[in-house]
Simulated assay, not measured.
Amino acid sequence: MASHIVKIIQSFYITHDVKCFMVEKPENYDFIPGQATDVSINIPGWEDKVRPFTFTNLREQKYLEFMIKIYRDHDGVTEMLGGINAGAELILHDVFGAIQFKGPGVFIAAGAGITPFISIFRDLYKQNKLYGNKLIYTNKTSEDVILDAELRRLLKNDYIKVFTRENVIGFTGKRIDRNFLIENISNFGQHFYVCGPADFVANISKNLLELGVTSDTLIVEE
């Protein structure tokens, strides 16, 4: 497996527990929007502790960007990432990932599961091809939403927020279940992109398939 040591150019928090990292881009290193790579920290004892993170930048940009949820109670890679900043080094590996744009459709994300879709949305917007896609994005509370202002700007009325632990005026305070999908989606013959925790992806996928979505048009991380 090829590896590349890259320096962190900039890092900053974009929510209370999600940190954005802009890092050097190795020469000839490329990805398809929606894809990811395994990342580790270039610190003794941490070089082999890899975790998968998705690229969120446009592929033509001269840097790479990751938006990483920091789990402060796990004593692991993300907690360590929470404490490192510009000048520190990361180790990147090969690019992988099944999530990529196949055609207009509905994107359903939970929490940090939005990250594969960010690069896709930015790329489609740049090509003036984002219209006709819808995002349903669920989080515990409004404070957990990643890039809310940008998603509103890009998707406008095709952006539905769902909060599971907060009732905010004007927004839906419930879970994405079978009834929610029926109420908010009129066409199950289009593409569906689902990303989030494993249980979330499994439940949403099961509901979509029961509602007539085919396995060919259901795109999830394998």
Rank of each mutant, 00 (worst) to 15 (best):
128 N>Q: 14
27 E>S: 10
197 P>R: 10
134 K>T: 13
43 I>E: 14
180 F>A: 04
26 P>Y: 03
75 D>C: 12
152 R>M: 04
168 V>G: 08
178 R>N: 09
160 I>R: 07
108 I>E: 06
221 E>Q: 07
173 G>M: 02
108 I>P: 13
196 G>S: 10
82 G>T: 11
100 Q>C: 11
190 Q>G: 13
165 R>E: 09
53 F>W: 00
188 F>Y: 14
164 T>C: 00
17 D>W: 08
38 D>K: 12
26 P>N: 05
135 L>P: 09
148 D>Q: 14
215 S>F: 06
128 N>A: 09
154 L>V: 06
220 V>A: 07
11 S>Q: 13
162 V>A: 00
176 I>H: 07
49 K>H: 04
196 G>W: 05
35 Q>E: 13
66 F>P: 02
29 Y>V: 03
90 L>V: 01
100 Q>E: 14
172 T>E: 10
4 H>Y: 14
143 E>Q: 15
128 N>E: 06
24 E>G: 09
17 D>E: 13
187 N>W: 13
213 V>R: 05
144 D>E: 06
187 N>Y: 11
163 F>G: 04
150 E>R: 12
44 P>A: 03
145 V>A: 06
40 S>N: 03
200 F>R: 03
116 P>S: 08
217 T>K: 15
170 G>E: 04
125 Y>V: 08
86 A>F: 00
133 N>K: 08
149 A>E: 15
222 E>D: 15
24 E>F: 02
182 I>P: 00
66 F>A: 03
218 L>R: 15
133 N>C: 05
135 L>G: 11
214 T>K: 03
99 I>K: 04
106 V>L: 05
204 I>P: 00
109 A>G: 10
21 F>W: 09
130 L>C: 09
17 D>I: 13
130 L>K: 07
191 H>P: 02
37 T>M: 00
100 Q>S: 09
184 N>T: 02
81 L>A: 04
29 Y>P: 04
118 I>D: 03
147 L>Q: 11
219 I>C: 05
1 M>P: 13
53 F>L: 01
203 N>C: 05
97 G>Q: 02
120 I>N: 12
82 G>V: 09
174 K>C: 12
31 F>H: 09
199 D>Q: 13
190 Q>N: 15
10 Q>S: 08
62 K>P: 11
35 Q>Y: 10
185 I>C: 03
35 Q>K: 09
25 K>Q: 12
87 G>D: 02
116 P>L: 14
